[in-house]
Design a protein around this nucleic acid. Structure first.
Ligand SMILES: [Mn+2]
Ligand SMILES: [Mn+2]
Ligand SMILES: [Mn+2]
Ligand SMILES: [Mn+2]
Lengths: 219, 219
DNA sequence: TATAAAATTTAGGTTTGTCTAAAAATTAAT
DNA sequence: ATTAATTTTTAGACAAACCTAAATTTTATA
């Protein structure tokens, strides 16, 4: 039996380990979980006891195979629920995270596979993040940060790195939702801001920060 | 802020109060919640503290207006999720209760009203139980227990009193799902068992127990 | 290498929700 | 009206998950 809190910690450790190859530190986990280092240490002992992580005092942690499976299953649930909320209930992509954060913990035998079927086996969630399949296999997509494009290159929006509602709402306003096409016209050396043109002929100037948080696929 | 446990107690008290007009007793709540009387007493103090129930030591409890609203909202959520699981995900009516028991606690601003819209504003759940609307208003239906029919009367199945998977699966086997038509042919005085005929001409003999747990609408 | 800074763990405590066993109050039965 | 049975509450504990403050260990710096 794995509690909601334990599941959330495993997911946090998974996310940290995705970015950095080395063991996840107590502080990094505390930051991700928005809690204190002391609380994290408490939990790490419990997770190690259950063989969900390898934990060496003062040395950080890594997920075991089992811990990694639990985290992957949780991410699958989270993202499938997000697809449901957007595709079926009509929420926008900036509204669904907190709901999915709760729904991911609902457990039942066939629930997620049935939901997956109902949704048509989506491979990516509303933020462009890949959804692992029932066996835990991931889809990968050829994508780069908008900031790495060279002037003249055309691309389509495939995802975001920053998932904050503020950023997502700003992208909505700019019309840069998933699938939106664009062409990089110019990068201003002064502040690395980007001038882009959309298929409908609009020209936008995007900050360096936007460029570093928007994934695109070069076409 | 109301916890999951508190919500469940309020729902239990609501259910007990539906059947009996008087105050719900500690033992009745303990039975409904499958816990001990001592745990119930603990919780009753907390709920009274939050003005969700009127509680007098040794005298049982009644929901306040606010407590009743919380319970009604919870039942609405539970039953809408059950409709979702059956209508959209293809679960059968005997599989959905435990899942809905978890889903009912997911909280978010528009979630339930959007789900309601997505489902087409259903008035009854997969077990024939009424779904209160967003303002807490209940639909009522003219229905009686099958056991009260007189020979020669025709009726259609509208709901169940016993919600156990065993009973629901037995009804599936008999073809007595929601909406199924039937005619009472005969009641055997010896054990009050019932001989009924279905529209397709089959004849069934149903025990007194079945008759007392199946709601029908006389046609 | 000694010292300072940062990271991590431990110690001790709180809240929620649960339990068993014992005490108290209510209700039923003689 | 007593006594017996039942119901309910209290007392005392426990586990999960969190906290703050203090101690310890590791890492960085002079
Ligand atoms: Mn999310
Ligand atoms: Mn997402
Ligand atoms: Mn149910
Ligand atoms: Mn139901």
């Amino acid at each position: 039996m794995i509690s909601h809190a334990e599941e959330n910690y495993l997911k946090a450790i998974f996310k940290i380990s995705e970015k950095e190859a080395k063991a996840a530190s107590t502080n990094a986990i505390a930051a991700e979980m928005q809690t204190t280092a002391a609380s994290v240490t408490d939990m790490l002992k419990r997770l190690a006891e259950k063989n969900l992580i390898d934990y060496e005092k003062y040395r950080g942690v890594q997920l075991t195979t089992e811990g990694s499976q639990v985290a992957t299953a949780l991410i699958r649930k989270h993202r499938l629920w997000e697809v449901f909320l957007v595709d079926k209930l009509g929420f926008s992509w900036d509204e669904v995270h907190d709901l999915a954060e709760q729904l991911e913990h609902v457990q039942g035998n066939n629930l997620i596979d049935r939901l997956d079927t109902f949704l048509g086996h989506p491979k990516f969630d509303p933020h462009g993040d890949p959804i692992p399949d029932a066996e835990g296999r991931w889809s990968f997509r050829q994508q780069v940060l908008l900031s790495t494009l060279k002037p003249g290159e055309r691309a389509a929006v495939t995802g975001v790195d920053d998932h904050s509602p503020a950023f997502l709402q700003y992208l909505d306003q700019l019309g840069l939702t998933l699938g939106a096409g664009l062409e990089l016209l110019e990068r201003f050396p002064y502040d690395q801001s980007l001038r882009v043109r959309t298929p409908d002929g609009r020209e936008l100037v995007l900050s360096e920060k936007v460029g570093q948080n928007l994934f695109v696929k070069i076409s």
